[in-house]
């Protein structure tokens, strides 16, 4: 059953169709306790504490089981719930750094145009920048197939029903890409503006897409996501007029929630505005 929403969808996380849910600890429990407890102490207990407590060993206190009188006690923890993911994300980040790889985490609602944006980027940059993609969806390999069809190395993570990618899924998926042959790794997250926001994957930068069909107040409705973005891309500008998109309101709302983010307005379909994105990318890439 689905781990996250209980929806009953089958399946666990798979990478290019291969289940990734195999247990991580492979210890085989092969030790066969043969040490045979043969110490022959005939009750001459050598512990010398001289039983000086007042009652003369006629134990008449009548609480039969020790757990009956163990009081509740408080353990202080102060632990972050996401610390395991954060630790794995830092490990990914260190690995990416060592590979001199620039890693983007691309986030948006379903249908905002994430895959089209990546396709257009790959097509326009051609051989100048070597791109690889890890793409997450609940099911189907469609996006990876679509990207590979354009000559882009792509690994599909199907999460089964998990609503976000996490650092561990990414670390498993990237083993299947030749990272030495890449300049930029793009991680296309599961289409969702809520859950993926709090899962660090080890990326260098976060790009949040907002398409003009979604409504100008989306940044205000999903502030956690937009606050985490270094770049906000307004996509599908070619149909803005047709859907009555209020550009000024959208830009104002993005700036209110993410004052430091770079805002780009593009149409991944027509290519309009994409040059600013390539310039930005070029300026950030390690030399």
């Amino acid at each position: 059953m689905c781990k996250d929403c209980g929806c009953g969808l089958p399946g666990d996380v798979a990478i290019d169709g291969v289940p990734a849910g195999a247990p991580q600890h492979d210890h085989s429990h092969g030790h066969s306790h043969d040490h045979g407890h043969s110490h022959d102490h005939d009750h001459q207990h050598p512990h010398d504490h001289a039983h000086e407590h007042g009652h003369p060993h006629e134990h008449t206190h009548d609480h039969p089981h020790p757990e009956d009188h163990t009081a509740h006690r408080t353990l202080s923890l102060e632990r972050g719930i996401l610390e395991k993911n954060d630790r794995l994300a830092e490990r990914n980040r260190g690995y990416f750094l060592a590979k001199n790889l620039y890693v983007l985490n691309i986030l948006a609602s379903p249908g905002a145009g994430k895959t089209a944006f990546i396709e257009r980027t790959a097509a326009d940059l051609g051989t100048r920048v070597r791109l690889g993609v890890i793409v997450g969806d609940l099911a189907t390999e469609n996006d990876a197939v679509r990207l590979r069809g354009r000559g882009i190395p792509a690994i599909q993570i199907t999460t089964g029903s998990v609503c976000h990618l996490d650092a561990e899924m990414v670390s498993r998926a990237m083993e299947r890409l030749d990272l030495n042959a890449l300049d930029v790794l793009i991680i296309e997250n599961v289409g969702n503006l809520v859950c993926p926001a709090v899962y660090d994957l080890g990326e260098t930068a976060r790009v949040v897409l907002l398409s003009v069909t979604e409504g100008e107040d989306k940044p205000l409705k999903y502030p956690v996501m937009f606050q985490s973005a270094q770049v906000v891309v307004v996509n599908k500008t070619d149909i803005a007029a047709a859907v009555g998109f209020d550009r000024e309101a959208a830009l104002r709302n993005i700036r209110r929630v993410a004052p430091n983010a770079t805002i780009l307005e593009v149409s991944a379909r027509t290519g309009d505005g994409m040059q600013r994105w390539y310039d930005l990318l070029a300026s950030r890439l390690p030399r």
């Binding site: 163990t70 006690r73 408080t74 353990l75 202080s76 923890l77 102060e78 632990r79 972050g80 719930i81």
Partner: peptide
Amino acid sequence: DIRRGRELQVTSLEVS
């Protein structure tokens, strides 16, 4: 500069 509001922690447990 967000100082508080991102917390997601287990702070303590009551056990026996």
